[in-house]
Design a protein around this nucleic acid. Sequence first.
DNA 1: CATGAATGAGTTTTCATTCAT
DNA 2: CATGAATGAAAACTCATTCAT
Lengths: 191, 191, 191, 191
Amino acid sequence: MSPKIVLIDEKLEQIREGALSVFAEKGYYSSKMEDIARDAGMGKGTLYHYFKSKEEVFDFMVERFFSEYEGMFQTLEKMGLDEAVDFMVEAAFSLTEKEKRIIQLLLQVWGHAALEKQTKTKVLIQQVYAKYIEQFSGFIARVKKGEKNDYKALSRQIFAMLDGMMIQIFLYPETAGEKEEMKKAILKMIR
Amino acid sequence: MSPKIVLIDEKLEQIREGALSVFAEKGYYSSKMEDIARDAGMGKGTLYHYFKSKEEVFDFMVERFFSEYEGMFQTLEKMGLDEAVDFMVEAAFSLTEKEKRIIQLLLQVWGHAALEKQTKTKVLIQQVYAKYIEQFSGFIARVKKGEKNDYKALSRQIFAMLDGMMIQIFLYPETAGEKEEMKKAILKMIR
Amino acid sequence: MSPKIVLIDEKLEQIREGALSVFAEKGYYSSKMEDIARDAGMGKGTLYHYFKSKEEVFDFMVERFFSEYEGMFQTLEKMGLDEAVDFMVEAAFSLTEKEKRIIQLLLQVWGHAALEKQTKTKVLIQQVYAKYIEQFSGFIARVKKGEKNDYKALSRQIFAMLDGMMIQIFLYPETAGEKEEMKKAILKMIR
Amino acid sequence: MSPKIVLIDEKLEQIREGALSVFAEKGYYSSKMEDIARDAGMGKGTLYHYFKSKEEVFDFMVERFFSEYEGMFQTLEKMGLDEAVDFMVEAAFSLTEKEKRIIQLLLQVWGHAALEKQTKTKVLIQQVYAKYIEQFSGFIARVKKGEKNDYKALSRQIFAMLDGMMIQIFLYPETAGEKEEMKKAILKMIR
DNA sequence: CATGAATGAGTTTTCATTCAT
DNA sequence: CATGAATGAAAACTCATTCAT
């Protein structure tokens, strides 16, 4: 916790913020290191003090992005079913309401991960989803008093729906209004 | 008198095939016109005889891709509920089984559409989804003897789930085995 | 004078016309063989039946252009001074009045001739000017009952003025109205 | 803290010099950015730090070229007629003696300005000539105690002759020896 | 003869990365 | 540490020329 570390963390935070903003809007290849640097409030050269390459900046930003939601479903442990579903859907939708950038970024990241060579991004996402599924199927098992493994498929379906909903909202923003229907649908699936 | 006779449709088909293959594997920006041309069995210059730019090649390929599935849900008209759900899920999953490329391509296309400037790709996808939703909610209305508009949200949820499932399958190919659970889940949602 | 020759001449004339038009407007390098062909009312390939290369088309057009004015000053032989000056200035100015293209073309041709490698165009222009000077200084010698060689410099000055006037007219088309002043100036120089 | 200090003016001067040299010899379209860069002693990319495009480099060079002679005729203010004519002709001819490049460049610039789309170069030349004519007709008016506007046409004729002489000298370098005749002719025209 | 589809060498331009200050 | 000037590899795109029909 020396002041130096604080300063570095501040820089990294600036970079993360700039990178998120630029990558979300332009995608990986149309984002220029110069844009990211400017957006982060520093010179191009400075960026290279902290990261060896553009790819590294991207990976760093993605990592931070997902880690932000890493523990999200730990709070489920103390909730009942209705409350939990409400919480999840609200969380997912609020994400998209706050910032158009978030959906755009997700679409970028998925696309990037799909590139034959981008193993790293793909692995990162895999880990995150694995954790989500783990936590959520555990939750259902508790509520339904069953075996966690029996609810993996169901959890995947629910997360698929939430992801797919992002795409729908991206295409037709008005879809964001169908939050309540969504909750009902998920409850139906679980019960 | 008359010059070399060329079967334009044949050429376009070659290009579509090459473009699909290359774009799916490398993404828009890492795909080189030369690669696409070679893959399509022609020289770089020839590509430019048929298309003014890389963007045009991409758009053309995307258009053809979606138009292939345009009428897909017309066959629903004569089916019962179980049969229809079976058909849809089978169709979606078979897409991913046949070729890893297809999911990769979809992820690329979504990412591309999310770029602030790519209005065209976005509009294209919007139209396609609108049509799908229209057809499917019409189907549900018939089966459930209700109003088409009351089933739009439900349709969107189901399509969201199918799209999201693509992402899951891309991340964990073994997910592709959960086809039957998927059918059950959808039936549950509709009933 | 077989019909075949007539047909060939017709084609060549079409090409000359098309080339003049396109080269004048776009300059050598921005003129595409395709444009010239279209303007000449034929296909690109046909152009290559008559000329081996773009450069050849250009040279042909330039040659025809200058040869059109080759004999122009032979008529001077029967004229008096005032009449001759009137004739020359009128001829030069009418050129520019008829078509903006002509000045543009001249500027293109001069520029092209100035390129280190374009010996051919340069030689062509040299020959034409030599002939002009020859004829005109001969004329002055007759009128002023002197030696032709003593009037070469004067002739060159007069032609220089006419050429330079083209540039002025290109820059300020209204200059074209100073025809009469021009005649007076030339007369003053000769007397 | 502060980055590498660069003397921008020095860089620009290098570029101007390289551009002048290359454009004069090869013309606009045959001049490669790489040639200009090498000639200016820098890499291709560096050129693009200072100019957005080839066209911009050209315009910059032309502007600098003409601005060099901008004030040339201000010195006329203190001269008598003979002295002034002597000065002007000497200036014009010395230009061509010093460097063949200069005439070649002028021919290139005129040709470039004649292209339908190159409004910028054309406007630039128009402004320069307007200034020249303004200054010189003012000078004649003073010497002949008349109205400046009455000498605009005369001025234009004289400048036309000087321009046209450049072309003659380009075609027959020996013409450069007719300097004295030129002076006499101009004096005759003015008196 | 006539045509325009096919081709690839050649150009402009971009941009990640380096490095002198 | 911070910076942005410098660089050249790489890519989209153009177009003269060729040649099958």
